[in-house]
Design a protein around this nucleic acid. Structure first.
Ligand SMILES: [Mn+2]
Ligand SMILES: [Mn+2]
Ligand SMILES: [Zn+2]
Ligand SMILES: [Zn+2]
Lengths: 166, 166
DNA sequence: TATCTTTTGCAACATTGTTGCTTTTTTTAT
DNA sequence: ATAAAAAAAGCAACAATGTTGCAAAAGATA
């Protein structure tokens, strides 16, 4: 992993006025999507824009199936698979392990890039709404392993009831 | 979850002499398998004995596919699915989440039973041999969650290089 | 705009998981 | 040991998920 490998993306919180016309919002988002894709040296295509948009609009994580559904009939299933793979490779999204054979994907923060993820945060799965959230501020704890084991990465998934469902 | 809900199974470490004849070992194991199934009010069938045996013989965890392969052509795929499901329900095995769409299963310790699992240990996936181990002695840490979230269960999966592969 | 490169969609296929129903096996009661 | 009842296994059909190669379409480049 190269030194100084982490790009600095602008925060870009997208705090648009609620009163903005729909069209205007669309334009802004489109620009943002294109910028993000360009930053990652990806060519700008409809499917990439659409799928990236889904992640940006979404608070929590998305499973492949969710994306297929939300992207509508617009794209081939194969394209969705390939797009997700590219996004993971580029450090745009990361995977979240589950115990039900349906990997979830969520946006990475700015520190991730091609070939190196740094998503050292805890994930939360709500038993009520069934959403999965990145708890970006909750850092994964160090784990003391038995002699002989060495750790590369620690993944923590907490299951419970989320803020909205209490 | 009822108070005093946890059965006490005998340790039964199966420290058999290496010199025991194959047949004898088989008989011993058979008895052990039957005992375990009876303790869990399960009827004694070939597939349940075989699959349980695979777990007892195996140090690490098994994915559904592993079991299908190891159980040979002996059983229908559907039977394997149903048997695993029953074992999970009964607290004989527990699932381990992964990020590659292949749930792993491993034996529970004695505290688990029907309707209540207590597998509060860390899991370890080796990047070299690709085995998954239960680190029974490494307890999952408590996680301090943001206001509004409440935890039911914490799952920790550490990825790295295992003892045997160092 | 013309050319080169990349991505998409499609088809075909493989793997994985589910469901209903019939047959077989296991358990239970005689 | 035998018969009746209950449970599990096997089978078939299907659904869902994931993979690959290739031709057509779209995007980047000059
Ligand atoms: Mn995350
Ligand atoms: Mn375990
Ligand atoms: Zn929730
Ligand atoms: Zn290993």
């Amino acid at each position: 992993m190269p030194v100084n490998c982490c790009r600095k993306k602008k925060g870009n919180q997208n705090n648009l006025d609620e009163i903005n016309m729909e069209k205007e919002i669309t334009i802004v988002n489109e620009q943002r999507l294109i910028k993000l894709l360009k930053q990652n040296s990806l060519s700008i295509t409809d499917s990439r824009k659409k799928i990236l948009q889904l992640f940006l609009e979404q608070n929590g994580a998305l499973a492949h199936g969710d994306i297929e559904r939300k992207a509508g009939e617009k794209f081939d299933r194969v394209t969705v698979y390939r797009t997700l793979q590219v996004f993971v490779d580029k450090g745009i999204i990361h995977t979240i392990p589950t115990a039900d054979n349906s990997i979830r994907y969520a946006l990475c923060k700015d520190e991730c890039g091609e070939g190196h993820h740094h998503d050292h945060h805890v994930h939360f799965v709500c038993n009520s709404c069934n959403n999965t959230y990145c708890l970006d501020d909750v850092v994964t704890p160090g784990i003391k392993l038995p002699k002989g084991y060495s750790a590369n990465h620690v993944e923590v998934v907490v299951e419970g009831v989320c803020k909205n469902c209490q």
